[in-house]
């Protein structure tokens, strides 16, 4: 049992007839970094959001961190998954009324029932890992985008997750801020964190990803190593997409 996500024939449509997920079957292994790519509207966000129950699906079966999930979306199973899976959003989604430290310790204190002292100790450790210890007492609006996103990563790490999901973590950042976030993610990958990352950053995918998943119109087109995908993609659609983003 080395897989951490197993999806069998996932189907989801928001509007009748249009499939945002079209019969997706896939496996993500432990300690793997999977990069998800595809054109806008191809269903990348929908896919990774089903992995922690933010999105429902119509049919198929999903198993995440050992917890099964069917189309009836048992609330208890979803919460069991969320306790072990962290998520980082494109727009950071920090809580503006809480300080950086409070943002990070909220879930450990309320979900895992840690004491404030334990939670703060761990939070400070995570912040120093992200290189932003000095900002602990500030509020999100006082931080740059790159710093906010690193706080968001620290917050996602606070529950000691087995899996981290990233939905375009650098798309909302100024170009000169992108690398500080990618570096943090690279470090996590080196430490053996399992990650599923939706991103358009080809450099990151080439260097860090173990495999690349390419989607189009809700379908899984191919799932292969970055070497093959970027130099020798099998499918016409993948090649077209790569041409577009390399321009």
């Amino acid at each position: 049992m080395s897989h951490i996500i197993r999806a069998n024939n996932l189907v989801k449509s928001f509007t009748k007839g249009l499939r945002a997920l079209d019969d997706i079957s896939m496996v993500v292994n432990k300690q793997e970094v999977l990069v998800v790519m595809g054109p806008s509207g191809s269903g990348k966000s929908t896919l990774i959001r089903t992995f922690n129950g933010l999105e429902t699906f119509d049919s198929g079966k999903l198993e995440v961190v050992g917890v099964p999930l069917y189309s009836n979306h048992d609330e208890r199973n979803i919460r069991a998954i969320r306790r072990k899976v962290g998520m980082v959003f494109q727009q950071f989604n920090l809580f503006p009324h809480l300080s950086i430290l409070e943002n990070i310790i909220l879930a450990p204190m309320k979900v895992q029932k840690l004491t404030r002292i334990e939670a703060e100790e761990h939070a400070m450790h995570l912040l120093s890992q992200m290189g932003i210890t000095k900002q602990a007492r500030k509020y999100p609006s006082q931080l740059s985008g790159g710093e906010q996103q690193r706080v968001a990563i620290a917050r996602a790490l606070a529950l000691k997750p087995e899996l981290l999901l990233f939905d375009e973590p650098t798309s909302a950042l100024d170009p000169e801020r992108v690398n500080e976030v990618l570096d943090a993610m690279r470090t996590l990958a080196q430490k053996g964190m399992t990650m599923v990352v939706v991103t358009h950053e080809v450099g990151f995918a080439r260097e860090v990803a173990d495999r690349v998943l390419f989607m189009d119109s809700g379908k899984l087109i191919e799932m292969t190593t970055p070497d093959i995908f970027f130099s020798n993609a099998k499918h016409e659609r993948s090649r077209k997409f790569l041409n577009q983003i390399e321009k």
Binding site: L54, F89, K110, V111
Partner: peptide
Amino acid sequence: NSQLEASKALGLSQAQTIRFI
């Protein structure tokens, strides 16, 4: 809505989300 999603993704319950977020 993104605030609620962030809170859910952290595993907070409905009641905790209302109370703290």
